[in-house]
């Protein structure tokens, strides 16, 4: 089990396309640079969506933890 110092948790379970990524991009500015957001999702697509989003926006996915829900840890880099 991962042990990240989480600044904020986003519950994105069951949201329709493309809301998980939209919500993430709205919320990333609410934490400081270097802080971590924990995403809770039930979408397998988010597992590949979030790293792609992080690459295109200059942020970082630290870890993806499988399970129900899937947990994705995203660090704000800029």
């Amino acid at each position: 089990m991962s042990n990240h110092d989480v600044a904020k948790t986003l519950d994105l379970k069951g949201l329709p396309c493309p809301m998980p990524v939209v919500k993430m991009s709205q919320e990333i500015g609410s934490v400081s640079v270097g802080q971590i957001i924990e995403v809770l999702t039930t979408d397998p697509g988010s597992i590949s969506d979030f790293p792609a989003w992080a690459k295109s926006t200059g942020n970082e996915v630290l870890e993806t933890v499988q399970g129900d829900p899937i947990k994705i840890y995203v660090k704000r880099l800029k």
Binding site: I47, W53, T57, Q66, D68
Partner: peptide, 26 residues
Amino acid sequence: MLADMSIAKAETIEDTRENFEQGVKN
């Protein structure tokens, strides 16, 4: 932002492939 994410996925897909497959398996 969404369009750029989709484009970036063509490059990141190899890194996330196994994790995505596991998520689908689940």
